[in-house]
Nucleic acid binder design. Sequence first.
DNA 1: ACGGCTATAACT
DNA 2: TAGTTATAG
Length: 701
Amino acid sequence: MPVARPETSDSRVIAHVDMDCFYVQVEQRKHPELRGLPTAVVQYNSWKGGGLIAVSYEARKCGVKRSMRGAESKQVCPEIQLVQVPVARGKADLNSYRSAGSEVVSILSRKGRCERASIDEVYLDLTEAAETMLAEAPPESLEAIDEEALKSHVLGLNNEDGSDARENVRKWICNSNERRDKLLACGALIVAELRLQVLKETEFTCSAGIAHNKMLAKLASGMNKPAQQTIVPLSSVKGLLDSLPIKKMKQLGGKLGSSLQTDLERYGINTGTWLWNIARGISGEEVEGRLLPKSHGSGKTFPGPQALKTISSVQHWLNELCEDLSERLQLDLEQNKRIAHTLVLHATAYKASDSDSQKKFPSKSCSLRYGAAKIQEDALSLFQAALREYLGLFTAKIQGSQNNQWGITSLSVSASKIVPIPSGTASIMKYFHGRQPSTSTNQSQNNLIEESAPLSPSDNDNDSEVKITKPQIEFPGEETRMNYGVPSLDQPEDRNLLNDQNPCCSSKNQAQDEFTLDSLPLSTSGSEKCSAGNQSQLMKNYSGEEPCVKPAMPSVNRQEQKRKSVNDKGTSSILRFFKNQDPSCAQQKLEHVENIEDVKAPVTLGPQSRSDNCLDRNQSELPNERPFEETGTSSSSVSAQFEQRRGVWSYNTDEIDPSVIDELPPEIQQEVRAWLRPHKRHNVAKRGSSIADYFSPTKNA
DNA sequence: ACGGCTATAACT
DNA sequence: TAGTTATAG
């Protein structure tokens, strides 16, 4: 079992040196005519030409693999040169390789503590040497950087096409501001020199990894072979680990690794990564800055004997719960200018009879219509739909006020998908400049409502039969009506109409104890009307074409929405993960760094948080607060905070939907495009040039 | 039948 | 999406 070894000192410089197909090199040195030819070392010859234990890179190019048999390798690569491992006392004799390894160690051990990890692997602690070099002859002071060092691979170093990789490395080595990078750079110089020395004195090539600990150095040494070296700057660690199959990690190549692998795979990339990270005390979770709840719910349990066994009792309690919920929704609307879009009904139930009693009572949801009565009505319909589903279509009809088959042990209704009323339009501004909502007149409410119309669930009464657009959001005060430019129905008519169309769906007028299963809304054949009505009237949720995000707010909102949906769907697993990491998850990086290396000073990175946070905050987090004032008028402390922060937020260019740009004013388009083109600087947060600034409501409004 | 209720989030 | 499930204060 591996043992946890917390990092003791910070900023060590560790190298792992790995000989390239070492046995082959040893044999080639012994038989120079084999140099450059596809070569493999086999042990034992008796069966199928023996097993390969080392394969030259030329042979690998032909598809020869370790673990192949000699004969097999001949098939893949007919010209392969097979060299047998010496045999002594009837067994493979590795002594020549051991002593060759010793030659190498004697060279590598010249610059620092050296650990012979295997016959062809060595760890070096070059901390002191690197520190000394940094103090006495730092890279930038050198007139030239060793050619071999310039060939280093620096993980995470931008290697754009067309740019001179070697020059980039030189800059990284010489111009780094981070002391620990500097130390690694010194380490890399030393290792390059050592490797050259090894080549010169032994004729062997090797590869190396240079990092702050053994694990990372070992990982890196294998990344660029043969005869190359790879540096792992602190900043690249997270990306490296994230991209790494667990098995690649030292000590995780076996059972432990595969058990981890399968377990983590079973849990998925997100949970897996999360586990991986929390195990190290790493958590990039941001404080979300959300002041308001995301849903409201009201529920009650009816344990055991109290279980509800009649629809009417259910209805009674639903009514109570819905009233409670409705009140709170109303309050949220008035105080926070938010509208909930989805009504969800949850219940738990038991079925006395069959052993099927395990079955879960399904949750149901529908568009939320404001007003206690509507919520009650809809909740009951949801319940009935769920109950029918729960009991199954075949179940015998139950008549009367009692049933001995089922009981409801808990009921709850909740309202979710709460979004702020779109702001920034003329009428909304007018509204906000008007009276407080509690005392608001119908007029002002109407303004509000009209503005929020696009926010409402896509109309769900466009039944084939009911050709009337009915408002989705209605307000409790019975007098309040909405009008979407279509003649609005008075509520009673409305209800009647619906009831006429879908009698079975309107539980409302039914005598309470007369419920039969037949009277429950069906979701399958037998009562298409009900089904259709139920589906469109109740089940349809507000997604549709997402009218909520399109009209009122400018492109920000649309972009945001688009980005979100794109993000949430495809790009899964690793790609997605990288994407999530990329936008300088500064916090997470920092924490990681701190954890690994006990570091204090953060890299000063662009501060942008995930852009959706920005918007969420901007739009939804102003309880009891006007979203924004026209200009100079006093902002409360809350909005002042937002003002303050806004200057710091900016968008990650990766996350900007290009189509959004087309919607900007031409002069802005130009600026934005110019800004996007370089596509490198993530931390462009200068006030006045970021997209965030453009979108900032106080500007360009 | 014994914790109830509220709330959030991942996942499918 | 809608629905399920788990979790937590």
